[in-house]
Amino acid sequence: MPAITPLDAEELPETAPGLARLLIDSVDGGASVGFFAPLDFTTALRWWLALEAPLRDGSARIWLARQEDRVVGTIGLRLTGYPTGRHRAEVSKLLVHRDVRGQGLGRTLLAHAEREALAQELTLLFLDTETGSVAENLYRRSGWTPVGTIPDFAHDPRGALSPTTIFYKHLV
């Protein structure tokens, strides 16, 4: 299993190209993560580099899975800036490269983010995912609770409107 390590703002510029390639692979593989396919490298790179300020101020936390010096997976947490929401975070960009899918890395990254969140006194996580996707099945099998489904929530990578299921998980 690849090693999972935190990403900090200082290493983001050197790591961003690998993250961009991972995002492109995920989108090209059909993952509905906010981008249309085909995703170009410059757009993907800019998206990751824009996370420098949130990483620096602590409103975003990202972990990487590396295998042979290549980023093959990632997961992030986005924290709210509201005082009343200090106990919660949104799970974002759980990505696993197609070369290593089916080996439990997605489940490992999700469990890692849950442990890290709890260690940081976050007790509630939430996320949204494309209804009917492989990711939806992962969240259900990992003990997440579906709240409901929103029809036509987002375009999938090919441009079709797709429903999204909202999930949450209490960590205590």
Rank of each mutant, 00 (worst) to 15 (best):
T43Q: 14
A44C: 10
L79G: 11
V91L: 12
R61N: 02
A60R: 07
V96N: 03
D99F: 08
T43M: 13
V71Y: 00
A50V: 09
P38E: 07
G73V: 01
S92C: 15
R88N: 10
Q67K: 14
L55H: 08
E52N: 03
V72W: 08
V100L: 09
W47S: 14
A37M: 09
A89R: 05
G104M: 10
R56C: 09
A65W: 01
T42I: 11
W47F: 15
E52R: 03
L105A: 03
T74D: 07
E52Q: 07
T42M: 11
W48K: 00
D57T: 01
W48P: 00
F41T: 00
V100G: 01
A65L: 01
L94V: 12
G85C: 12
H97I: 07
H87Y: 12
T84D: 15
T84S: 15
H97L: 07
L45V: 00
V100T: 11
R46T: 13
I62E: 07
R86W: 06
V72P: 06
L55S: 05
A89I: 10
A44P: 02
V100P: 10
R70E: 14
L94C: 10
G85I: 04
L105C: 05
P38G: 01
E52A: 01
G85H: 12
L105N: 04
A44S: 09
L45T: 01
T43I: 10
E90S: 13
L105M: 12
L77G: 02
L94G: 08
V91Y: 06
R70Q: 14
L95R: 06
A53L: 04
D40S: 12
D40V: 11
A50E: 15
